Simulated scan of single mutants.
Amino acid sequence: STELLKWYDGHARELPWRVSPSARAAGLLPDPYRIWLSEIMLQQTTVAAVKAYFLKFTALWPTVVDLAAAEDADVMAAWAGLGYYARARNLLKCARVIVAEHDGKFPTDRAALQNLPGIGPYTSAAIAAIAFDHAETVVDGNVERVMARLFDLHVPLPNSKGALTSLAASLTPQTRPGDYAQAVMDLGATICTPKSPRCDLCPWHSICAARKAGTAADLPRKLPKLKKPTRFGTAYVALRSDGAVLLERRPERGLLGGMLGWPGSEWSETLTDPIPPIQANWVEVPGEVRHTFTHFHLRLRVMVAEVEAHQTNQTFIAAQDFRPADLPTVMRKIWSMVAAET
Results as ranks from 00 to 15, higher is better:
85 Y>W: 01
66 D>H: 12
244 A>I: 03
12 A>Y: 11
167 L>R: 02
228 K>E: 12
179 D>R: 02
328 P>K: 07
332 R>N: 05
185 M>N: 07
141 G>N: 09
287 G>T: 11
148 A>I: 10
251 P>Q: 15
33 Y>W: 15
219 L>A: 01
329 T>W: 02
274 P>R: 14
334 I>H: 08
147 M>A: 12
230 T>K: 15
248 E>S: 15
96 R>A: 02
66 D>G: 05
201 L>W: 05
10 G>A: 10
105 K>R: 15
74 D>F: 07
189 A>K: 06
186 D>L: 04
85 Y>R: 02
91 L>K: 00
97 V>A: 02
119 I>S: 14
15 L>H: 05
244 A>F: 09
75 V>S: 11
157 L>P: 02
305 A>C: 11
56 K>G: 05
180 Y>I: 03
94 C>P: 00
331 M>G: 04
315 T>M: 03
60 L>Q: 15
202 C>Y: 08
340 A>C: 03
101 E>F: 01
249 R>Q: 15
117 P>E: 01
94 C>S: 03
287 G>P: 08
113 L>K: 03
172 T>M: 14
75 V>A: 06
54 F>G: 12
227 K>D: 07
263 P>W: 09
280 A>M: 13
261 G>H: 12
21 P>V: 10
320 Q>M: 01
274 P>V: 11
37 L>P: 08
154 H>Y: 01
205 H>G: 04
67 L>A: 00
97 V>N: 00
156 P>S: 00
285 V>D: 10
272 T>K: 15
187 L>D: 05
141 G>T: 10
205 H>W: 13
259 M>G: 06
97 V>P: 01
23 A>E: 14
24 R>K: 12
325 A>I: 08
177 P>H: 09
132 F>K: 07
291 H>S: 08
86 A>P: 00
154 H>T: 13
297 H>P: 07
220 P>H: 06
34 R>Q: 14
104 G>Y: 02
171 L>W: 00
278 I>W: 13
76 M>R: 10
71 E>M: 13
162 G>T: 04
155 V>N: 01
267 W>Y: 14
145 R>V: 12
108 T>S: 03
171 L>F: 06
227 K>C: 05
114 Q>N: 10
37 L>F: 04
217 A>I: 14
143 V>N: 04
325 A>L: 11
184 V>N: 07
92 L>Y: 00
240 R>I: 04
241 S>A: 14
5 L>Y: 03
175 T>C: 02
35 I>F: 09
222 K>S: 09
267 W>P: 00
40 I>T: 14
152 D>P: 04
293 F>M: 08
85 Y>N: 15
79 W>G: 11
298 L>T: 03
109 D>K: 06
101 E>P: 01
234 T>F: 00
66 D>T: 01
143 V>Y: 06
107 P>G: 01
31 D>Y: 09
